[in-house]
Amino acid sequence: MRQSVLPVLTVVAGIFVIWYLASIWLNAAWAYDKATRSGEELGVVALVADTWSQEKPKLPAPHQVGVEIWDTTIEKKITSKRSLIYHSWITLSATLLGFALGTGLGIALAVGIVYNRTMDMSVMPWVIASQTIPILAIAPMIIVVLNAVGISGLLPKAMISMYLSFFPVVVGMVKGLRSPDAMQLDQMRTWNASPSQTFWRLRLPSSMPYLFTSLKIGMAASLVGAIVGELPTGAVAGLGARLLAGSYYGQTIQIWSALIMAAALAAALVAIIGLLQRVTLRRMGMA
């Protein structure tokens, strides 16, 4: 782990350098335009300084995004509608609700599939087929329809998150619940274990590594679901709404700060699951 710190840092530094150079390149046209209109001659230093500090740049420089994030998280009150923390919380709550529902549904389906042959044969192909449908594309319709029925707020977004996050859980859990080999199952039989004992003492514990891997994928997917679910609600609140509002008004810095915030949120959520995984597996003696 330690020997990869230096390469990772190098790559990250490289990304920042490319980012700064790209923002000069992309914003230069506007800077030249402004200079010719005011009849000034642009030197290299002035050009760079201008491209890194425009109001509505094509590509904001990293420090501009950093300042915007600082302004909208630390400086603003949390309850303010301009606070990024407020918007993140809206998205996060939908994500977590959808993730919990999706995980529950996924585990229930997986248990059904493992224990019921009819379900295995009829449901499993459709579970796989359901993921080739670009669900995100019909997110707007789900939101509008659920709104018309009278369900609004958190739940429609959570439904989309649920749909996206249940699939990895089903696939991972089916694999995990089937991972005990014939020898171990025979051992349970020689102990005269009942089916429920086999499930709780053997199948469930041995599925844990698979479960946590799928949970990580499911968590990332459900955040994407929540963000896209916020687009059609007319840009009211949430990180997705910030993205949409930013693209309506050309506020690129706002878009980027919402994007970085979403990335940080995803990274934090996945890291939390990773931590839980490590602690759980260590206590179970599997890692």
Binding site: K58, V224, I227, V228, G240, L243, S247, A258, A262, A266
Partner: peptide, 15 residues
Amino acid sequence: AALPVIGMAPILVMW
């Protein structure tokens, strides 16, 4: 790969 990359969409549409 785990990030909500889809959020890049408005920026790329702008570009």
